[in-house]
Design a protein around this nucleic acid. Structure first.
Lengths: 226, 226, 226, 226
DNA sequence: AATGAATGAGGGTTCATTCAT
DNA sequence: CATGAATGAACCCTCATTCAT
C-alpha cells in the first residue's frame, strides 16, 4: 500500500509548514502509509474491535502517543484503510475499462480487476469486507457512498450485458451473488494451494457469465424480481 | 432456539448435578434457549468482540451474574450459538436428502435448505458467517470440524453432479463460490425488498448450476485447478 | 476433627425440634463436623481469603445453598474451626498437666501437647496459625481471648520454671520465641522426611530449655526486658 | 525501597523502550519505589489475597489504570516486594560476614542481620513471611530459589559451629527452629513495648546458641535426626 | 516529531449470600 | 433437609485517548 500514489491522506498537519513544507508533507505521508500498512495487518488478524491501539503500537514500533500524531482516532485508521482500498480499486477499474466496448469483456474485466486487487492486497480486502459495519456516522457514510458507486458500476456493466443478450434476470441478485463469490475468498484463499488471480478470475467469470446467461434464458427467471 | 443438553454447561457450577427433576431440566433449558436467542441478536448487531456481557445483561433483562449461572463464558455463548445453528442445518439437510436420487435435485436441495435456514434464522447465520474466526482452541476446533463436514457434504453433491454430466471443473472453487454467493446474503438481504428463500434459492441455483455446467464445457476449464 | 467430642457447635437450629430432637441434633452435628473438616482442608490449601464458598461446595459435595443451612457465613466457618482447635488443645493440655509437679516436666509437657496436636491436625493448625488476623469483630475477639488464655498458661509454666532455677530472662520473649519455633512448623514439616511429634518435641524442648536456662545465667540477660 | 531495573517491567508496555533519558529512568524508578512501599503496607495490613488493586489505588493516590503503567499485575507487585526484601537482606548479610572468622560470631551476626532488617522493615518482612505461598509458577520459583540460598547460608553457619564444638544435632531442625523464632516476630512485636533489634538479637542468639550447644551435648540428641 | 505518564470508563468474570421451593 | 436460581458488589485488568514536554 505504501508504494501506491497517495496524496494528502489527511490534512491534519498540526502547525504551519515552513520552507520545508513539501518535503515535510512527503515524509509525513510516507510514515503514515507505513503505519496504515501495519494497521491493516493487525485489523486483518484480530479484527477491528479486538485490535487495540497497543497492538498497533507494538506492530509499528511507534509509541502509543506517537500514533495519535498521525491519526486522530482508531476509527480514522480504519476509515483511511477502507477509503484507500476502494479508491485504488475504482481508479484502476476506470483505467482498464477505457476503450473496451464489448459488454462481456467489460464484465470479465471488472471481475479480473477485483480479484487481482483482492489477492494482491488480501489483508486490506479482508478488512474492507469483514469490517463493513464497523464505521459509524460520517466516516461510515463516506465509505458507504464509495461502495455504492462501485456497486452501481458493476450493476451497469451487468445490466448492459443482459440487455445486449436479451437476458432477463434480477440485476441486483446477480451482482450481489457475484460480489459474494468474490469477497468470500478472504475466508478460504490459500496462496500455496489455490489458483492465482488470473485463473480464479477466469473460473469465476465463466461460472457467473454462463450462469447468468443460461439462467436468464430459463422461463422462470424471465421476470426479474424487483 | 432449543438448548443444548445441560451436561455441556455444568462444569463451572459448584458441584455436579445429580438428580435433577425432569421438570427442572426443562425449565433450565427453556431459559437457556431464551438467553441464547438474545445473545444471537446482540452478537449480530454489534459483532462478537464489540458486544459486552453487560449488553447481554440488558438485552435479557437478567443480571450480569445471572448470565454466568447459565453460561461459563462469553466464548461459550458464541460456541453454543454456532454449534446449534450448524447442527440444525445439517440435520435438516440430511432429512431432506433422504430418498432423493437425482444429482441436480440434490444440489438444488442443498441450496434451498441452506437459504431457507439462512433467512429464517438470519441473525444466527450472520453470527455463524461473520464470527468465523472468533472462537479459539477447543471450541473453535469443534465448530471447524462440523463446518468441514458440511463443506464436504456439499462438495460430494457437486462432484457427483459434475461426474454424471461429464463436466470438468474444480470442485473446491465451485463449492466455495457457491458458499460465497449464499453466505454473503447477510450483508445485503432486506426482507422488505428482496425475494423470499424459495425464489432466492431458485435464482442462485440457476446461476450456479447453469454456470458450473456451462463453464465445465468450455475448453479452458476442462482441467480442474489443482 | 469429626471424631473428637463436639457439643452443639452451633445453636442455629432453624425450627423447633419435635420428638426426634436428640437424634436430629446428633445428625446435624455429625454433618457439620464433616463440613468443618473439608473446610479446614480448603482453607489450609488456598488460604481463607482465596478460598471461595464454591470451593467448599465442591469439596463437600454439598450445594452452595446447602452449606448455608449449617453455617451462616464463611467467617463463621473459620471461627468454628479455630475455636474447636484451641479448645481441644487447651482441654488436652489441662488434663495432661494434672498431677504433674515438676516445673521442667510441665514445660516439656506443654511443648509435647502442642506439637502432638499440631502434627496430628496439621491442616487445622496451619489455619489457626496463618489466619490469625482474618477474623474481625466479635468472632475475632472471642478467638483472641482463648489464645490469650493459652499464652498465659504457657507463660505461667515458663516463669515458674525460671523462678525455681533462679533464672532471669524475659518471659514474654522466651514464650513467644517458643511459639515461633513450634508454630513455624507448618511452613516446613514434611511427614515423609521429618521426625514425628515425639522426637520433635524432645528436640525443641531441649533447645528451648537448655537455651533459656543457659541464657538466663549469662550476665546480660539478668534484667528482664520490661 | 529502591526499585528494580526497569527492564523487568517493560513486557506489557506497548513497545520496547529504547532511548530513555537517564533522568526519565530515575524518575520512573522513584515513582515505582513509592508505589512498592504503599503496596507493602497494604499487603501487610489486609493480606495479599484480601488486598485489592483498588485499595492500592487509594493508598497511592494513583488511578487504578495508572498503577498498571508501572506494574503488569498484582502478582508482580508481590514478587517485586519479596525479591527486593530477600536480595537486600542477603546482600547485607554477605557484607557483614566478610572478615568474620569465629563460627559463633558468624551465627550471631546472621541473627542480628535478620532481626535488624526485620524490625527496620517490619511490613515488608511480614509480607515475606506471611505470603510465602501466594506466588505461583515462575515468580514463585524465583523467590523460592532465593529463599533456599538464604536457608542454606544459615545452615552452613550453624553446621560449622556444631562441627567446631563437637555438637551433634539435626541442622535442619535447628535452623528451622531459629527461623521460626525470628519470623514469628511479625505476629507479636510491638515497637512501643518490645526491645529493639539489638537486644532482641542478643536474647534470641543466647537462647538459640545455649540451646543448641547444650542440647547437642545431651545424650539423646547425639544422633542427628535424618 | 514523538513520547512518557496518566486517566475514566468499561471489559469479562467471580464473590458471598439469599430465597422460594 | 437441601436445592436451583438469582443477584449486587466487587474483582483484576485493558481500553482509547490526552497532555505536558
Amino acid at each position: 500500500m505504501s508504494a501506491s500514489p497517495r496524496t494528502a491522506l489527511t490534512d491534519r498537519r498540526p502547525r504551519a509548514l515552513g520552507r520545508n513544507a513539501l518535503g515535510s508533507q512527503k515524509r509525513f505521508d510516507r510514515r503514515l502509509g507505513e503505519i496504515l500498512d501495519h494497521a491493516t495487518a493487525v485489523f486483518c488478524d484480530k479484527g477491528y474491535d479486538a485490535a487495540s491501539m497497543r497492538d498497533l503500537s507494538r506492530a509499528t514500533g511507534m509509541s502509543l502517543a506517537g500514533l495519535y500524531y498521525y491519526f486522530e482516532s482508531k476509527e480514522k485508521l480504519l476509515y483511511l484503510i477502507q477509503k484507500h482500498a476502494f479508491e485504488t480499486i475504482l481508479a484502476s477499474l476506470r483505467k482498464r475499462l477505457e476503450g473496451i466496448g464489448d459488454p462481456e469483456q467489460r464484465v470479465r474485466l471488472f471481475i479480473q480487476n477485483h480479484l487481482e486487487y483482492f489477492l494482491a492486497n488480501q489483508k486490506a480486502m479482508k478488512v474492507l469486507s469483514h469490517e463493513d459495519e464497523a464505521l459509524k456516522n460520517s466516516y461510515g457514510n463516506e465509505i458507504r457512498a464509495i461502495k455504492r458507486v462501485y456497486y452501481r458500476t458493476c450493476l451497469g456493466l451487468v445490466e448492459d450485458l443482459m440487455h445486449r443478450r436479451g437476458v432477463k434476470f434480477s440485476g441486483r441478485i446477480a451482482v450481489l451473488s457475484l460480489f459474494g463469490m468474490m469477497n468470500w475468498i478472504y475466508t478460504w484463499h490459500n496462496p500455496r494451494v489455490d489458483a492465482d488471480a488470473g485463473a480464479l478470475a477466469r473460473q469465476m467469470s465463466d461460472i457467473f457469465l454462463c450462469g447468468l446467461l443460461g439462467a436468464g434464458k430459463l422461463k422462470r427467471n424471465s421476470r426479474p424480481a424487483q
